[in-house]
Amino acid sequence: MLELRLVQGSLLKKVLESIKDLVNDANFDFSSSGFSLQSMDSSHVALVALLLKSEGFEHYRCDRNTSMGMNLGNMSKMLKCAGNDDIITIKGDDGSDTVTFMFESPTQDKIADFEMKLMDIDSEHLGIPEAEYHAIVKMPSAEFARICKDLASIGDTVVISVTKEGVKFSTRGDIGTANIVLRQNTTVDKPEDATVIEMNEPVSMTFALRYMNSFTKATPLSNTVTISMSPDLPVVVEYKIAEMGYVRFYLAPKMEE
């Protein structure tokens, strides 16, 4: 028996919108502490890790650990039928090959049930080692989205360099080059507008902008984004989901031949 009631149903809608274009199918792993998902994109360049903790739900019941394979495109189609103010409940029964999404309007005058077929997905969890990162940049998520979008109109890859001076995003393409430098800025009215750079050692890495732009679909989930880099590891682009968990995107770097 599985029953999860999320008053802020729009959060789940936003989570799906942020990952559905990167990952086609994924196993949702439910346990008593919450649910999680880990999946690579089809070309094995990026990996999504999602965690939503049980504390964030108004009601959370999961009698035993269970894994449900879902097509994220189909799940997104169903969740789009929920209103932004709706309460969303996920229900499942042991051994069933379907999952039910229930949408309740805030005034309880409209209640909808959508039953979705589950699928068998072969997926192995990758071991993600704990890492000390050379540099961690926390910045407004909208600013990061703007930079990725702007640079993608010039080039295909972005070089992200962190030094004492700040964080630099660079690209080059047929029409020319672009460099955007952000300096640490903590003297802002609202903490979410700050750019905070924690640097143990300078680092400079190259990534495909196509993936970075895909990650920025998570921007509505959080006012801030954290970018963690070490030379010999995939970059981690993390959007925290208030009080509940996170969506993390890992992207393998491009290396010089």
Binding site: V45, L126, G127, P234
Partner: peptide, 14 residues
């Protein structure tokens, strides 16, 4: 030229 690395060259299958 730069080559795209795979996630699998960093994170191990169990």
């Amino acid at each position: 030229m730069s080559r795209q690395k795979s996630i699998l060259s960093f994170f191990q299958k169990p």
